[in-house]
């Protein structure tokens, strides 16, 4: 019944493809050197993306999770949001904090925005404290408490296991020594810290090598797009 929206028509799609392809080439031109085409794409990107995040935040959070909680009956009739029966007035709190944050735009009241910042910092400190303690401190210690020797039948595997386990334990301990700040890295302590750096370097090398795959995939995606575009011309 409904007409195809104008922007979904084949002509509009072709224009879209062309805009996308030209913008892609404009960004790639930066690899040669800075130039007006890149500058244009860069400035467009900044404007478009700032507005994009604002819009998404507005429709996915502000309307359903704030306005619809405060004014359920009114919001429910205009926008496609599921609303509760009664207004939940404690949502005034984030609204007030949000507005306080915006006082930053008027220099006379800007100090009020610190209240909102204080809330954010407190939230960050409180959640990070427990989560990092749990997942990155306690559990990592737990996982490193491994027996060096595990009885297995095959001698080769047993030796390999012992070696690997030793590398893990010594690696973790030495690298932790590298991060020790309040004691000079001298003597045997310094040597252990040195081993720690080697372990860190091996980890960095491995991560770097692993990442190349990810980066090439991205370029593959872009290049296939450009190939599709070139094919569409002919």
């Amino acid at each position: 019944m409904e007409d195809t929206p104008i922007l979904a028509s084949p002509l509009a799609q072709t224009i879209s493809l062309w805009i996308a392809a030209l913008l892609t080439l404009m960004i790639f031109s930066f690899l040669y050197k800075d130039n007006p085409a890149y500058k244009f794409a860069e400035h467009l990107f900044v404007g478009v993306s700032a507005a994009y995040w604002m819009t998404v935040g507005f429709w996915t959070t502000l309307i359903p999770n704030l306005m619809a909680k405060l004014f359920p009956s009114r919001m429910g009739t205009i926008f496609p949001v599921a609303v509760g029966n009664r207004a939940e007035y404690f949502y005034i709190v984030p609204l007030v904090f949000g507005i306080l944050l915006l006082t930053r735009l008027y220099s006379r009241l800007a100090w009020l925005s610190r209240w909102a910042m204080a809330f954010i910092i407190g939230f960050a400190a409180g959640t990070n404290f427990t989560r990092y303690l749990q997942s990155d401190f306690v559990t990592q210690i737990h996982s490193t408490m491994i027996p060096l020797y595990e009885p297995t039948g095959n001698i080769m595997t047993a030796v390999g296991r012992i070696f690997s386990n030793l590398v893990v334990v010594i690696g973790v301990v030495c690298a932790l020594i590298y991060f020790y700040f309040s004691k000079p890295h001298e003597g045997s302590f310094g040597k252990a810290a040195r081993v720690g750096i080697w372990v860190l370097m091996a980890a960095f090398g491995a991560s770097f090598g692993y990442t190349v795959m990810a980066r090439v995939s991205l370029l593959t995606g872009r290049m296939s797009f450009l190939i599709t575009w070139v094919q569409s011309i002919f």
């Binding site: 991560s207 692993y210 795959m213």
Partner: peptide
């Protein structure tokens, strides 16, 4: 692939 090495300490526990 960038994030993957970071997850190894979480596996298998």
């Amino acid at each position: 692939a960038v994030m993957a090495p970071l997850l190894y300490p979480y596996y298998p526990k």
